[in-house]
Structure formats: C-alpha cells, structure tokens
Design a protein around this nucleic acid. Structure first.
Lengths: 109, 109
DNA sequence: CAAGCATATGATTGGTTGCGCATATACGCT
DNA sequence: AGCGTATATGCGCAACCAATCATATGCTTG
C-alpha cells in the first residue's frame, strides 16, 4: 500500500472528481440503496423518493465514474455497486463523523 | 465496525458535505503538503502555488470541517491534518483509481 | 407495426462555489 | 504609538451543477 504518496496535478484532479461524485446526498442515497444488492431504476426511484429523471441522471454520473455498474434486462436496467472501495469509504467517513460529533457533544458539558 | 449501516437524510447530508470538502484539487494539494507535518500559511502558499487569499480561504474550509487543525505562533498560523482518516481516504481513492485506470489501459489492447 | 412501459436526455433555471482584487485584522518590533 | 509582516475577509464575477419539465429512445407484447 502506497501511503502518503505525492501526486501530480492531474492525479489530484481525478481524486477530487471522485470525491465530488460522492458529495451529493441523492447519490449517497442511491449507493446506500444498492448496498443490499442490485436494483432497477424504478426500485431506486421508490427507495430514494426522487423523480425518475433525477435518479436517472445521478445513476449516469455514478456509472460513468465507475462507481456503479449497469445490467440491462429487457425493459429494465439494473444497477449495482461496481467499486468495492465505496462501502469502505462511506464507513470511514461515517466513523470519523461520529467521533467528531461525539467529541462536540462531550465538549458541551 | 458498522458495515453498510442505513443512514438518515441528515447523516447523508453530513457525509456528502465531508466528501465535498475533499472534492477540490487545491484543497487536496494543501492536504498533501501537510502529509509531511504542520506548515504555516506562507509555506503552504509556496508549496501549492496558489495565491495567499485563496489558500487562506481553503484552509478555513478545511479547518471548519475539522479536517485540519490550527496553531497560532506569533504572526504565523500553522496548520496540520487533524483527522487521521484523511490519509486513509486518499489512499483508498487513489488505489481504486489506479486499478480502474489500469483496467481501462488494458482494455485498449 | 402499433401501443405501452421503463429509462434516458435536451433545455432551462436557480443556487452554490471557486477565484481574484482589494482591504481589513492580528501580532511583533522598535 | 507607529510600522511592517502574516493571515483573514468582503465583494463581484464566472463557471459549474442539481433539479424540473418535457420529450425522446429502447424494448416487449399483442
């Protein structure tokens, strides 16, 4: 594992783009909905409470970033998490946020 | 470790915000420059090639997100990485990107 | 092939954000 | 106190992006 490697501007741009893809709540809802396995668009619309058009747009963003994968089956399109690091990323951030928040709570007393 | 937990909308908003903070190349440059230890603003301006005003703004963003910490010493202000998960996050993303890119390169042959 | 369902996409708009310039604040020194 | 250095901040602009509406594409069935 390369720890703390120095990256070029182009590389940092890619990393930034990757984080940007994960920086929208709706996209995180979609990812979360797919933790349980692949779902088609209609199911994702239902699970996230978004409109069909918006969900489709975000799915395209996530897919072209190789975060999700597509599988067509007749009329329907099934999406699944294609990048195995995504759950780890989310868990890392969530754990860090929980610690940070509990520290803030503790500092109130 | 809580894997694949279901999060509320408020929690997802926090996670999204966290990713958003990491989604700018200049901020990643600052973080990268701090991997070697704390630096003051002037050193960070030099290391990143940005303007003083812009660097200061990004430092504020990173600090209020508890990614960085501040230490004042006379005229100078020293910043350091306050969240230990940041390097892990960056390495995870970089590793994933390297794999993804090498797959794309391999698919060209 | 016509109709109907599932999904994707063009166009528009409002909101957010990064950047640059100028200036303000904070601190130390003489 | 006054000056110089280090850092922060108000403001305006331009670019980007998510959400929405309407419409298009793709596939299946009768």
């Amino acid at each position: 594992m390369i720890r703390h490697a120095q990256y070029s501007n182009d590389a940092l741009e890619l990393v930034a783009r990757r984080f940007a893809v994960l920086s929208e709540p709706m996209r995180l809802r979609l990812i979360q909905a797919l933790f349980g396995g692949e779902k088609n668009v209609s199911e994702l619309v239902e699970a996230t409470g978004g409109t069909q058009a918006n969900v489709s747009r975000h799915l395209q963003t996530l897919t072209s970033a190789h975060v999700l994968g597509r599988r067509k089956a007749g009329l329907q399109v099934f999406y699944h998490i294609a990048d195995p690091t995504i759950p780890k990323l989310c868990d890392l951030v969530c754990g860090s946020l929980e610690k940070s928040l509990s520290r803030q709570v503790a500092s109130l007393s």
